[in-house]
Simulated assay, not measured.
Amino acid sequence: MSAPVPLNLLLVDDEAPARERLRLLLGDMAGQLPNRVVGEAANGREALAWLNACAATGETVDGVLADIRMPGMDGIELASHLALLPQPPAVIFTTAYDNYAVQAFDLAAVDYLLKPVRAQRLLTALQKLPARLAPTELRQLAATLGQNWRGGGRSHLSCHERGRLLLIPVDEILYLRAEQKYVTARTLERDYLLDESLAQLEAEFVERFLRLHRAVLVAPGAVAGFEKAAGDDAEAYGWALLRGVPEKLPVSRRLWSAVRQALA
């Protein structure tokens, strides 16, 4: 009989002693549940960079053990970005805080462990792998809880491009525009295609972006001015002019007065 294939695990925690404790517990239970710690990271951004490097070599990760509160990028936002991967790893949260967020994740079948992590509880959580939420469910849940947790949504959006997960700082986005199946996020440097709905992004970032048109949200600080559209222009009643990029964004007749008043 062939030996069981070990679980490949990534440990994500800003505290090195917490990662070391997990390593020791995982080593002790290897006889019951074969596993390998294939990497460590101190926050969500480091974890995503590590996973990008793994994808380039073809190495897979079955599970991510992630703290919730971390500087730079927390575990909840990390989960929302992981959901964009073609085969996202299962996420098990570790936290010192027993509150509504971890309870909601538990009810949704994404496990969590309270610190200090106990061996039997860790074993029970790992035995659930590879069971996981579908990517769309994980993304929606993480976005909703992340907005409540931080009171303002994610700090980054993500784009899956040529096998890599690219992070886009939300405060660098000039506008979001729905086009066919995707949403385009525009920064000063380039466009990114997002696999998210404009309605979901508007709800999450209601204080950061202003709706100009049924297909367009804009960062108020990106608007340099307005001009009226030609009388025969079917796309827009008027146009918003942007700072630093040549594009103009359509403004609908219904929103024209409210938008100009909001940005006056």
Rank of each mutant, 00 (worst) to 15 (best):
Val218Lys: 03
Asp28Tyr: 11
Thr184Asn: 10
Asn8Leu: 09
Leu210Tyr: 08
Pro34Asp: 04
Val206Gly: 04
Val223Glu: 04
Leu11Asp: 14
Leu193Arg: 03
Ser80Trp: 06
Ser155Tyr: 09
Arg69Thr: 13
Ala134Phe: 02
Ala219Phe: 05
Val251Gly: 03
Leu25Val: 11
Ala47Cys: 03
Ala258Ser: 12
Ala108Cys: 08
Pro89Met: 01
Ala215Trp: 06
Leu242Tyr: 07
Ala240Phe: 02
Tyr192Arg: 06
Thr144Arg: 14
Val251Ile: 08
Val259Trp: 09
Ser252Lys: 05
Arg154Tyr: 14
Pro220Leu: 02
Gly44Trp: 00
Leu84Lys: 15
Pro88Arg: 02
Leu157Glu: 01
Leu122Lys: 04
Ala203Ile: 03
Gly151Val: 00
Arg23Phe: 10
Ala264Ile: 09
Gly225Ala: 13
Pro220Arg: 03
Gln140Tyr: 05
Gly221Phe: 13
Ala49Tyr: 03
Phe226Ile: 15
Arg69Phe: 09
Glu179Leu: 07
Arg19Tyr: 12
Gln180Ile: 09
Val61Gly: 07
Asp67Glu: 03
Glu202Cys: 10
Ala53Tyr: 14
Gln127Val: 06
Gln147Pro: 04
Leu188Glu: 12
Arg23Asn: 14
Glu179Phe: 07
His156Ile: 12
Arg260Gly: 09
Phe93Pro: 00
Gln180Ala: 13
Leu22Ile: 09
Met1His: 13
Leu194Phe: 01
Gly244Met: 10
Glu202Thr: 14
His156Gly: 07
Ile76Leu: 05
Lys115Ser: 00
Leu201Asn: 00
Leu242Cys: 11
Glu20Thr: 14
Arg208Ser: 13
Tyr237Phe: 13
Tyr112Gly: 07
His213Phe: 11
Ser80Val: 13
Asp195Thr: 15
Pro246Asn: 06
Gly244His: 06
Ser197Pro: 08
Leu255Ser: 07
Arg164Pro: 07
Leu129Thr: 14
Glu161Leu: 08
Leu217Gly: 04
Gly152Pro: 02
Leu141Val: 11
His81Arg: 05
Leu212Pro: 05
Trp239Leu: 04
Ala42His: 13
Ala42Leu: 08
Ala224Lys: 15
Gln103Leu: 11
Arg150Trp: 06
Leu113Ser: 01
Lys115Met: 03
Ala41Asp: 00
Ala56Asp: 09
Thr184Tyr: 10
Ser80Tyr: 10
Tyr237Ile: 11
Val218Ile: 00
Phe93Met: 00
Val117Gln: 00
Asn43Ala: 03
Glu196His: 01
Leu133Asn: 13
Gly39Asp: 00
Pro116Arg: 14
Tyr97His: 15
Asp28Trp: 12
Ala109Ser: 13
Arg177Gln: 12
Gln87Trp: 08
Val91Tyr: 00
Thr95Tyr: 00
Asp195Pro: 06
Ala219Trp: 10
Arg23Thr: 15
Val91Asn: 01
Gly151His: 00
Arg208Tyr: 05
Asp233Lys: 11
Leu51Pro: 05
